[in-house]
Simulated assay, not measured.
Amino acid sequence: MELSQRARLRAGDQGALGELFDTHAQAVYGYALRTLGNWAAAEDVVSLTFLEAWRLHRKIHDGDDDLRPWLFGIATNVLRNTTRATRRHRAAMSRLTECRSAPDFADELVSRIDDSAQLAAVHRALPGLRRSEREVFRLCVWVGLDYASAAEALGVPVGTVRSRLSRARARLRSLAEHELTQGREPARTIGQVRGGGFEAARSLQEEIR
């Protein structure tokens, strides 16, 4: 009887890890890029995620062969640590210089899309959510995990995912509308990742409804 990918990975099969990387690395990269807005940092997150996956491979619990919830749970933890480190770095730099913040380099990696103003407003509004709401929004909307998979990834009940996503969508609608009424110049935001075929299925304006 052929072992599942989950069983092979838990047994220490490096080939299973390679298959996991081939299947999901681009999705992890897109998740990290949309979160951080920096291609180099996103690549680091991919590397750290799969290194951590290998370190934890013996702790994989029983389940079906869908390893996305487990993998994106690891990616979320890596992003939490990365975001904290980035905040500390920015705080330190702000004490050293009065220069304006560096531009977001994500626009170098994406193609222009029709509703750029709405997407830019949503992207600017995301920091206004609680971290737990941002994580649920990113996993369910950007990555495409269902409620159960997102709950497994975050280690919370399915009902918590539903309520957090509902709050995130409602608050994003309000914040994005406020951003749009400020008359800011629309920024190019993430719709497609260069070279990897990762493409947003719908506009964020539709996804938060």
Rank of each mutant, 00 (worst) to 15 (best):
L36P: 05
M93Q: 12
G12F: 02
A150T: 10
R58P: 00
Q118N: 03
R162H: 15
R10S: 00
T83A: 11
A75V: 03
Y147W: 15
A85L: 07
A91G: 11
L109F: 15
A85R: 12
W39N: 07
T83F: 05
T189M: 07
C99A: 13
R34H: 08
R87A: 08
V136I: 14
E52W: 01
G128T: 03
G15F: 15
G63N: 05
D66G: 01
Q118I: 01
G159S: 15
A148F: 07
E199K: 08
L119C: 04
F137Y: 15
A153W: 09
L154R: 00
A187G: 07
A170T: 12
D114I: 11
L154N: 01
Y147K: 10
H123K: 07
R112D: 05
R88C: 00
W70A: 00
D13T: 11
A148Q: 12
L172A: 08
S203Q: 06
L145V: 02
G191L: 03
G183S: 11
L175A: 11
L17E: 07
L48P: 00
L56I: 00
P127I: 04
V156I: 15
D65W: 03
T97I: 06
P157D: 09
G191T: 11
G197Y: 14
L3R: 15
R100C: 06
R188N: 07
G196T: 11
G195F: 05
Q26T: 12
R8S: 05
R112G: 03
R171C: 02
P69D: 00
V122Q: 03
A85D: 12
A92W: 04
L175N: 04
